[in-house]
Design a protein around this nucleic acid. Structure first.
Length: 306
DNA sequence: TTCCAGGGGTAGA
DNA sequence: TCTACCCATGGA
C-alpha cells in the first residue's frame, strides 16, 4: 500500500464537525464516520492509482488533513482529484458570509455563527448526490442506509472499502438485476434512467457546480428526472449551496411542528412563509433551525475543531 | 395485519 | 391548483 498525506486549505469560517454533522450523508456508504476519532472515511477512484481510501480529519489552523491510501503509486493527477473531491465534500469553496449576515443579531440563531454551521456534507459527484437523494424518498432512514450500502457493493474494492458505482456501471445492469441488488423497489427504473442519461451524455449534472448557472435552470433539469420532485430538487440544490428552495420532507414537518409551531401541524406554506424573510438563505436557516437539537449536542461534543 | 418512512407520478375534479 | 390513490420495501 502507498500513502500520501495532504493538507488542504480551508476558509477561516470552516468547521469540520459542523460540516460532517450537517445532515445524514456521513452515515451513507461509501462515507463512514468514526465518531471517536473524528475521522471521515470514503473510498474514491483515482485516475491513475485506481481505488483509494481517503481519511479526512481536521488539520492545522485553516486546513483539512487528508491521508490517502492506494494499492498503486500515486501521481500528481491523483492528488488533484483527491483535492477537488475534498473541496466538494466539505464545501471548502462555499462563501457563507451572506448567511451569517442574514442571521446576525438573532440570539436564538447565534449558535449557527458560533459553531460555524452552514456547510453541507456532499458527495464528490452530483451523480452520487442524486442517487442518494432518490434513496431518501418515501423510505425510512434505515432503508436509505441499507440501500446505499448495497449500491456501494457494486463498486470496486480497496482495503476493505468500496467506491460508489459509476453511471456506466449502473446503466450496464438490467432493471431486474439492479432491483435485486439494491432493493430500491419502484425507484429502480428511475435510478437506471438517471444512470443511462449521464452515461450517454444526455445529462451532465457536474455542470451544475458552475456558480454562474441559474438556480431555476438547475431545478428545471432535476425536476425533469423521473422520481425527482420538489423535495428532491431542493435537497440536491442544498448540497450545491443553493438554499432558495426548501427541502420539506416528513422529518422537517415534524421537527417544525414541535420546535417552531407550538405542536401544531404546519402546512408547507406555513413553513415557506416562516422562512421567506431570509431570502436566498431561507432553506439553510430552516434546515439548521429544525436540526438544532440533533446538531448542537454533536458540535459541543466534537468541540471546536478547524 | 396495518401503517408509514428524510415523496413522486398521475388521473380526475 | 388540489386531492386521492398507487407505487416496492422493510421495520415497527
Amino acid at each position: 500500500m502507498n500513502d500520501l498525506d495532504l493538507e488542504i486549505a480551508a476558509p477561516a469560517d470552516f468547521s469540520f464537525a459542523a460540516t460532517v454533522f450537517s445532515h445524514g450523508w456521513r452515515r451513507l456508504a461509501p462515507f463512514e464516520y468514526d465518531d471517536e476519532a473524528g475521522v471521515l472515511y470514503r473510498a474514491e477512484r483515482l485516475p491513475i492509482a485506481g481505488p483509494a481510501v481517503m481519511r479526512m480529519s481536521p488539520g492545522g489552523p485553516g486546513s483539512v488533513r487528508v491521508q490517502v491510501t492506494t494499492a498503486r503509486s500515486l501521481e500528481d493527477a491523483d492528488a488533484g482529484v483527491v483535492s477537488r473531491a475534498v473541496v466538494r465534500c466539505l464545501g471548502l469553496d462555499r462563501d457563507l458570509t451572506g448567511f451569517y449576515e442574514a442571521i446576525a443579531g438573532e440570539p436564538r440563531r447565534k449558535w449557527m455563527i458560533d459553531h460555524r454551521a452552514g456547510r453541507m456534507l456532499a458527495s464528490p459527484t452530483l451523480w452520487e448526490d442524486l442517487v442518494k437523494t432518490l434513496a431518501t424518498t418515501n423510505i425510512s432512514w434505515s432503508g436509505t442506509m441499507a440501500a446505499c450500502g448495497r449500491l456501494t457493493l457494486l463498486g470496486p474494492e480497496i482495503d476493505g472499502r468500496r467506491c460508489f458505482p459509476t453511471p456506466s456501471e449502473i446503466s450496464a445492469m438490467e432493471v431486474e438485476e439492479l432491483a435485486e441488488a439494491t432493493r430500491l423497489g419502484y425507484r429502480v427504473p428511475c435510478l437506471r434512467a438517471l444512470a443511462s442519461a449521464i452515461h450517454s451524455g444526455d445529462l451532465d449534472p457536474e455542470c451544475w457546480k458552475d456558480p454562474a448557472l441559474d438556480t431555476d435552470e438547475i431545478a428545471r433539469q432535476i425536476l425533469a428526472l423521473k422520481g425527482f420532485g420538489p423535495y428532491a430538487a431542493a435537497n440536491v440544490l442544498k448540497l450545491l449551496g443553493r438554499h432558495e428552495r426548501l427541502a420539506i420532507d416528513s422529518s422537517v414537518r415534524e421537527r417544525f411542528r414541535i420546535l417552531i409551531n407550538d405542536g401544531v401541524k404546519p402546512s408547507d406554506s406555513d413553513i415557506e412563509r416562516c422562512y421567506e424573510p431570509f431570502g436566498r438563505w431561507r432553506g439553510l436557516v430552516m434546515w439548521l433551525d429544525v436540526m438544532k437539537p440533533h446538531l448542537l449536542p454533536n458540535l459541543e461534543k466534537a468541540g471546536q475543531t478547524t
